[in-house]
Amino acid sequence: MAMRKPAQPTTSRSRAWRWFHRFGSPAYFYFFAGRWAPRFGHLAVAFFLAGLYFGLVVAPPDYQMGDSYRIIFIHVPSAWMSMFIYVVMAVSAGIGLVWRIKLSHAVARSCAPVGAAFTFCALVTGALWGKPTWGTYWIWDARLTSELVLLFLYVGYMALLAALDDWKTGSRAGAVLALVGLVNIPIIHYSVEWWNTLHQGATITKLGRPSIDIRMLVPLLIMFAAVNFYFLAAMLNRVRCELLDQERRTRWVQEVVNG
């Protein structure tokens, strides 16, 4: 057991708590992420290829939109990830803020660029689909506007981190912003129910009668798996970089760098 502080009062603490502490140590997590990031990356590539094949080649066209509906295989997983990653980022930043855990801040900082990329992707694919379907690229309805606000939140979070030279100060300030922005997530999700919008309601999370043909749903679920694996791979790689940078004066980093 490579515990960094063996003198910790572990008597009253469970094994799970000790494991949690070890897992949260930057050195341990660096090597853990190094093992798992490539695996998730390979899974992501495999699922992307399968999802795109089934989505673009095998799945039948839509009765109204023809082939243009196929953009949902990119758009819906991207939109879902844009919200999911924000929640991961905000919760992680909040844990870092309260418990002063360096790894949590590193995870939060690493989520932001990935989430911003998915948000951008959702907005662009939505606009490209909107023109042939609705007749316009953009409309200021509640769903589109709140998703755009999400992009600004990601960009604002990253800008704040970059503006503050000190890593810890930046992480804490960013955590406050991330927590404030958390309120936007339920607004995005329920915008199509609370207000009337041009954007249609939920298809998959809707209970009751089926809204999507099974041959279209399967590729969509494969793409969901793909984007999740991609997120894990990209995020873990970024966490490794953050940890190396933050722990550069410690012995384990010196050992990693000098071989």
């Binding site: 066209p61 041009l198 249609q200 309601g201 298809t203 043909d213």
Partner: peptide
């Protein structure tokens, strides 16, 4: 503008 519904199915 046309409003699309949340249903997707083959022809």
């Amino acid at each position: 503008l046309a409003k699309h519904d949340e249903n997707y199915m083959p022809p």
